[in-house]
């Protein structure tokens, strides 16, 4: 930042713009008042208690967790072999394959959601859960493919040949060399996918049903009807969970590696 005052100022401004509104939400979660208002009045933890015992939230939390775990597992199950094929395989049109799996990043989620609604829920008469698992898996695929591959892409491309030369069969090479190199990538891809699914709104909004709501959608519904600090308390809890996951990801792999290995 030294010697670049303009960039430094913008960076600080950026942080302020991003963080300050969040701090307000966190602060309001502790207010002893009936509405989401500022300035704060008193200090209470009761909104946390109410949020934790509000059944629509708790059941939606379980739904969201289940959905996130399921779609993360599926995305990795598809993404890891694809990554291996792209990074190590001798297949033609690698960039085409990679492009295909990264495309959910640019295709509007509402379009995918609508298609799934028509084809899976109406057409095949499946439940919202099935459609949501498919939808979230599609959204998570770019992370599963890209983030998983990052650690492998940075590794020496000849390590597998070296293992073969030392006597390891292709399978043994995969177990003892490729997989350990892939592990940090898989771990961070899993964390990132989990957070992405857990926080998703557009897809979940389109594919919700009467008996299956994700937490963000339930919170959205709630905020349209009531305007009390319980929603701030719930948001604060979510924020805390996300921060914990982010810290774990940073400690084990590092964000630079997760987001394309910029610093290596």
């Amino acid at each position: 930042m030294k010697g670049r005052p303009l960039i430094g100022t913008f960076a600080v401004l950026g942080y302020i713009i991003m963080i300050v509104p969040i701090l307000f939400v966190v602060a309001i979660a502790f207010t002893d008042s009936q509405t989401l208002s500022f300035p704060l009045r008193g200090f209470t933890l009761r909104w946390f208690g109410e949020a934790a015992s509000y059944t629509p939230f708790t059941s939606a939390l379980l739904s969201s967790l289940g959905l996130a775990v399921l779609s993360t597992a599926l995305a990795l199950a598809i993404g890891i072999p694809v990554t291996l094929a792209i990074q190590r395989g001798k297949i033609p049109g690698k960039s085409l394959v990679e492009g295909l799996f990264l495309s959910p990043l640019v295709v509007p989620e509402l379009v995918v959601g609508l298609a799934l609604y028509q084809q899976v829920m109406v057409g095949l008469n499946q439940t919202a859960l099935v459609a949501l698992v498919i939808g979230h898996t599609v959204i998570l695929l770019p992370y599963a493919v890209r983030v998983t591959g990052a650690s492998l892409a940075l590794a020496d491309p000849f390590v597998e040949e070296a293992a073969r030369g030392l006597g390891a069969s292709p399978f043994k090479t995969f177990l003892t060399v490729t997989l350990p190199l892939l592990r940090p990538g898989i771990f961070s891809a899993a964390l990132l996918s989990f957070i992405t699914s857990f926080n998703n709104v557009p897809m979940s909004l389109l594919l919700q049903s009467r008996n299956f709501h994700t937490l963000p959608i339930t919170m959205l519904d709630y905020i349209q009807q009531s305007y009390d600090p319980m929603i701030a308390a719930m948001s604060t809890l979510l924020l805390a969970g996300t921060v914990v996951i982010a810290i774990v990801a940073e400690r084990t792999v590092g964000f630079a590696k997760i987001f394309g290995g910029i610093n290596k």
Binding site: D156, V159, E161, A162, G165, G167, V177, L181
Partner: peptide
Amino acid sequence: NLGMVFQSYALFPH
């Protein structure tokens, strides 16, 4: 059963 040394060494980083 040949011992190969690669130009990039190809050591196992883990």
